[in-house]
Simulated scan of single mutants.
Amino acid sequence: MNKHLVKTIGSFINFISFLSPYYAAKLAVKIFSTPRKGKLNDDETNYLKSAAQETITYKDVPIKTYCWSGKKDTILLVHGWESNAFRWKDLIKILKSEDYNIIALDAPAHGDSGSKIFNAVLYSECINLVIKQFNPSIVIGHSIGGTASALAINNHELPVKKLVLLGAPSNFDEVIDNYVKIMGYNKKVIKAINDYYLKHFGYFPEFYAIQNFSKNIQAKGLIIHDKKDRIISYKDALHISKYYKNSKLIKTAGFGHGLKNETVYKHILEFLNT
């Protein structure tokens, strides 16, 4: 959205908050939870045809999964916001050459999966279902996909042996705060959003922080984060590292939030082979 449209929508929702705070929050959360990108284009669809595909359903949400068979450990690849399974193409090539068994999924409202709405809690439950279906010993997650993976592993005490977090946020309320600032929401909208999350998810957004969902994670961890990441601050990696005791932090420079780089892939392979 361009800046003028963002300002207009933010002002409208601020106005609505004086009439109905709950409805204002519902609109704000819907905007926040609706991806504008991430659906598959023709090239991405054609590439993903190289995998064996299966759809599993979480409640009423169909989740598309992709499998490239191999004889070594099973690895689950979990993408982030406004992306899809295709984002792993380069890493998949490397992992296939090492003969790993590779699983990837499209998040709700992304790729070829169903739903129009995405949130990290929903994603974590879908990840839990996929892990129970395919039993990976290794999970690699990018951005919010990494955080949702950690949430799933912690909440369901899943027997994952290794977890790689790439450019992952350490908490969800900071992501929401950034959204609130961009939209220019007033205090009534902010309070209403917090109340909305408490009603529908059982917790305020600040509950979803690494110190609250790392206690049951037994998996050995690798955290990779770029110090010039403009989407998720490097401070988030330091925060994750502080509470995720069984983990190693690697700082990169110049690879941005995407972390699509041979150096990053080398770090991942070294971690997988130790």
Rank of each mutant, 00 (worst) to 15 (best):
S97D: 10
P169L: 07
V121W: 12
H156R: 13
L163H: 01
G184I: 09
L151C: 12
K188D: 11
A192H: 03
N171E: 12
I144R: 08
A152Q: 03
V160E: 00
S97F: 05
D177W: 10
L129H: 02
D99Y: 06
F118A: 07
A168E: 08
G111Y: 13
N119Y: 14
A120W: 09
E98N: 12
D173N: 13
N154Q: 07
N194G: 14
V121L: 12
I92F: 08
G167T: 14
G111Q: 11
I140L: 06
C126D: 07
E157S: 12
A152P: 04
L163Y: 03
I131C: 00
N128I: 03
K96T: 11
V164R: 01
D106N: 06
G114T: 06
D177I: 07
G167F: 14
I138N: 02
N101L: 02
I182L: 15
E174K: 14
Y179M: 04
I103S: 00
K132G: 00
I190V: 15
Y123F: 15
F172G: 05
E125W: 09
S124H: 08
I153A: 00
A120R: 09
N101H: 09
I117Q: 12
K187H: 14
S97W: 02
E157M: 13
S143I: 05
E98P: 09
E157I: 12
A104E: 04
L163V: 06
N194S: 14
E125A: 06
I131V: 12
I117S: 14
I138T: 08
N128L: 04
N155K: 15
I131K: 00
P169E: 04
A192D: 06
I103V: 11
V121I: 15
L122N: 11
L163C: 04
L105P: 01
I140A: 02
P108D: 10
I94Q: 03
A104V: 07
E174T: 14
A107H: 08
A148H: 10
N171S: 14
V139T: 05
W88D: 00
L95G: 00
Y123D: 05
I193N: 08
C126W: 10
I103F: 02
L91M: 10
G146Y: 06
K89D: 01
I193E: 06
S137F: 00
S143H: 05
S143V: 07
F172C: 06
K116V: 10
L151D: 04
A107G: 08
H110N: 12
N119D: 15
G184A: 07
S137G: 02
N119P: 09
S115I: 04
S115V: 05
L158H: 01
N101F: 01
K161S: 02
H156E: 11
I127N: 01
K132E: 00
N101K: 05
